[in-house]
Design a protein around this nucleic acid. Sequence first.
DNA 1: GAGCTTAATTAGAATGATTCTTACATGCAA
DNA 2: TTGCATGTAAGAATCATTCTAATTAAGCTC
Lengths: 162, 162
Amino acid sequence: MQATERAAKKSATVKLAAMKEERASRMVDGLRGAGLKLTPQRLALVRELAGDASHPTAQELFERLRPALPTMSFATVYNTLAALSEARLCATRSLMRGPVRFDPKVEPHDHAVCGDCGRVTDVPIPSVPVRKDGERARRIEGFSVHHVERVYRGICADCRPK
Amino acid sequence: MQATERAAKKSATVKLAAMKEERASRMVDGLRGAGLKLTPQRLALVRELAGDASHPTAQELFERLRPALPTMSFATVYNTLAALSEARLCATRSLMRGPVRFDPKVEPHDHAVCGDCGRVTDVPIPSVPVRKDGERARRIEGFSVHHVERVYRGICADCRPK
DNA sequence: GAGCTTAATTAGAATGATTCTTACATGCAA
DNA sequence: TTGCATGTAAGAATCATTCTAATTAAGCTC
């Protein structure tokens, strides 16, 4: 690896950690602002979700937190995730059959879904204006569009036949 | 209603019925072609699904067929829908939390999803070229895109506050 | 810092969606 | 029409999620 690459990777890692911190504190502030109590369970869940771009399920988060909080119940995971998404501090994604997935990234973006392993990857929004699409749908259906979401369906690099 | 509107509506109805027939026979032929037996249960399900643009769930189809086939089991509905989608004779849609929905329309198109009632409506594909989006995702993620799907999230006419 | 109030947590039951299992029934090729 | 491979029925099993009722604890007040 060259020095420039190493520097770029280090910079990306630093940026990621900063983003995680920023998301975590935004979630904590949001919970407080909504008049919700800051329990150890909620703080642990927020910390776990904030730095996770893999779109985990409630089950996955529960299992990751279990070692640290062995008495935590499933309902708490669901309740906390419901509170977070209610307050728009995280998003829920249902891009394929199976459990709902949670996303700490609330800014508009799209997703690539692997039809083989089910992995969901973030994709930045395209330069193509989204508003045009939205207006078309509004005209055609009498439908008031809040936002447009693109789903790229295909096969990820790891699942592609060698 | 004016004569031209009436004529247009009648024409649309005729076209819809023709499309239903065409889809139903395509499904029947497809089942036969896949070496699957044409049982009364499968034929009834195909007829029910072919003309339905509402993206029904397995439960809904089961309930609609129960009067005609009171002994049919739930597993048969799921088995038949799995066989149809396996053979690309229908599509499955998971656009929001809750049960998978089934779609007789296999040609590429997009969907508008009401965040209030959950209704899913077909939307024709936009004139904006989809390939451009797909290529972007492929480049960025090492992801092989099969197709791009747009989801318009908002509120439908019936759910909009008066 | 102790007590109070009220919301949060826990454990487990309940519900809903889907898949699996096993025994019986039947479409269809010979 | 007969045989057999496939399909179906009924219900159990599994997975995701929500609900319930009883206990616990966050954070305010003093």
